[in-house]
């Protein structure tokens, strides 16, 4: 095809499409090309799993007229993914799944973006955090364990995912409320963290339930407390006390698993994604996934979601200021 002719054909088609547009605009918006679902984290992690599950459910139940393409952009603690979506202003075919790095990455690294740059679509779930120790240790309760930490005077090792992210925030909160000191050892992923606990290379972790559940069932690790105001209702988990019950401290932290669109995403598109994601959310597969990983089902959209996000951002700012994790 010679460029001039191609250009002409393109022009003609564009004009034809434009002529056809007005009636189409009245109908509900639908994706007209493959949807790109960006993951601001590496392959195999929690956000990655959920994103691929969403793509899988959409494929299985034919929920979207166009396929969903999952793309990992993990660079700079997720900054790469966020900046990529931020740069696609008005694009109706790009969405992003977020985790807590939506708040922590800009605060810690100073990378210029905020959740306000993106269009909130929906909150899918909230992930719990649990304090784990190796099952061979004598600590049966969080109280016993923290007493031991205090006694050992800052030589006990707490492992977590990444630096200046949720795991370290929780560790610092625990330190400040109990007047103890941990050696915080950052690892690359949650699975690795739990295995280092099983191998006795560290003394405790603050893993998400799904990262440690199998080792727990195999009798290798022991959950001591949930960092939430209420116990996890699922049968397997309901015997684990909340941190308040265990040590009387209010250290509550939940991690966002939400979906955002590009800046200024058209309203019709946002509505379509909400409908689509609701169908995913209501599917038995998604429900099963949540219950197995002890994630909190937390569907939330619209202005409620926005005000929740505002609260969450403020919370991270406060926590990270307290922990001295803000960018200097």
């Amino acid at each position: 095809m010679r460029p001039t002719r191609g250009h002409l054909a393109w022009l003609i088609t564009a004009l034809t499409l434009w002529a056809l547009l007005p009636p189409a605009a009245h109908a509900a918006w639908e994706p007209t090309k493959p949807i790109e679902l960006v993951i601001p984290a590496g392959t195999g992690g929690g956000a990655d799993q959920m994103a691929r599950l969403i793509a899988g459910i959409a494929e299985k139940h034919k929920l979207s007229p166009r396929p969903i393409i999952v793309v990992n952009k993990a660079g700079g603690a997720g900054a790469e993914g966020f900046l990529y979506v931020k740069g696609k202003k008005g694009d109706a075919h790009t969405i992003i799944i977020t985790l807590s790095n939506l708040f922590t990455t800009p605060l810690h690294t100073g990378v210029p973006f905020s959740w306000k740059d993106l269009t909130p679509i929906t909150r899918m779930a909230l992930d719990q955090f649990i304090l784990w120790v190796n099952a061979e240790t004598p600590y049966k309760t969080a109280k016993e364990y923290l007493a031991a930490v205090k006694e050992k005077g800052g030589t006990m090792k707490m492992a977590g995912t990444g630096s200046a992210q949720e795991d370290q925030i929780i560790t610092i909160l625990l330190e400040q409320s109990q007047g103890v000191k941990f050696i915080y050892v950052p690892f690359k992923g949650g699975g690795e963290v739990c295995v280092n606990l099983v191998g006795n290379h560290v003394d405790s972790t603050v893993n998400n339930p799904i990262e440690c559940v199998s080792h727990w069932k195999a009798g290798r690790v022991r959950p001591l407390a949930v960092f939430d105001t209420a116990r996890i209702p699922d049968a397997d988990w309901k015997d684990i006390p909340t941190i308040k019950e265990a040590i009387g401290a209010d250290i509550n932290y939940l991690m966002l698993r939400g979906i955002f669109g590009t800046p200024d995403m058209p309203k019709e598109a946002v509505e379509w994604y909400q409908g689509f994601l609701k169908k995913v959310y209501d599917s038995p597969e998604f429900k099963e996934y949540l219950s197995r990983g002890a994630l909190k089902p937390s569907w939330l959209t619209g202005s409620d979601y926005v005000s929740w996000l505002q609260g969450a951002e403020q919370l991270h700012k406060d926590l990270m200021t307290k922990g001295g994790l803000l960018k200097k």
């Binding site: 590496g42 392959t43 195999g44 990655d48 799993q49 691929r52 599950l53 899988g56 992923g189 699975g191 690795e192 739990c194 295995v195 799904i210 559940v213 199998s214 080792h215 069932k217 195999a218 099963e288 996934y289 197995r292 990983g293």
Partner: peptide, 23 residues
């Protein structure tokens, strides 16, 4: 339940999606 390679990391995610708990 820990991946020995990036490929295994993705498969691990697969196990969870298929309803299996690696470990």
């Amino acid at each position: 339940g820990i991946p020995g390679s990036p490929t295994a990391a993705v498969m691990l995610g697969g196990l969870i999606i298929w309803g299996l708990q690696p470990g």
